[in-house]
Design a protein around this nucleic acid. Structure first.
Lengths: 84, 84
DNA sequence: TAGATTTATACGCGATCACGTATATTGCCA
DNA sequence: TGGCAATATACGTGATCGCGTATAAATCTA
């Protein structure tokens, strides 16, 4: 799996969904490993903005993924504006 | 700035704080750019787990950073366990 | 297609968000 | 050291978290 870039919650959720499926896990089994409900995993993967950081980090660790923070490769003004 | 790895909220907060200082911004000015209070930026940088995803993504975009999700370079069982 | 699995959504609940506003605390520099 | 800037923390408020539980909707699969 190549590195995947996330600039908003939706992209992040999509990445997590792909990773979970690749690991052949259901939302239920993933959630049980990190003490989160299936419904919460669903919200995370849907890219809901108000999901909590702890939920994200727990899912990442259960999927054996890590986060890298780096300067944006090429600026994309529209995406920044889209946040508001 | 080299890529920085975050496996938990604290590491993520620390990275954001470094990036903000490097950009020579105060929590106040950063917050005003993304419609977040100085107090909220403070919580984010402190690594509080219940901060919301939207808060993180907004800060990243204001600092012109992006998130990369990738497989963990080397597994660290203790850190995973530390989540609970 | 029927049945089973998986995912999305709902309700009530206690906890906690980010908010505005304000203040305590800390850090820095003349 | 004194004073200011920067950061951390507090209170009340409305919104929303994740929870347990349950069900509706979507998606496989035999």
């Amino acid at each position: 799996m190549t590195d995947q870039i996330a600039r908003n919650e939706k992209q992040l959720g999509a990445i997590l969904r792909r990773a979970r499926r690749q690991a052949d896990l259901t939302q239920e089994t993933l959630g049980s490993r990190i003490h989160l409900r299936q419904a919460t995993v669903s919200r995370l993967e849907a890219g809901e903005p108000a999901v909590q950081l702890s939920t994200l980090m727990a899912a990442l660790s259960a999927l054996d993924l890590e986060l890298v923070v780096r300067p944006r490769s090429k600026s994309s003004a529209t995406e920044i504006a889209d946040l508001f």
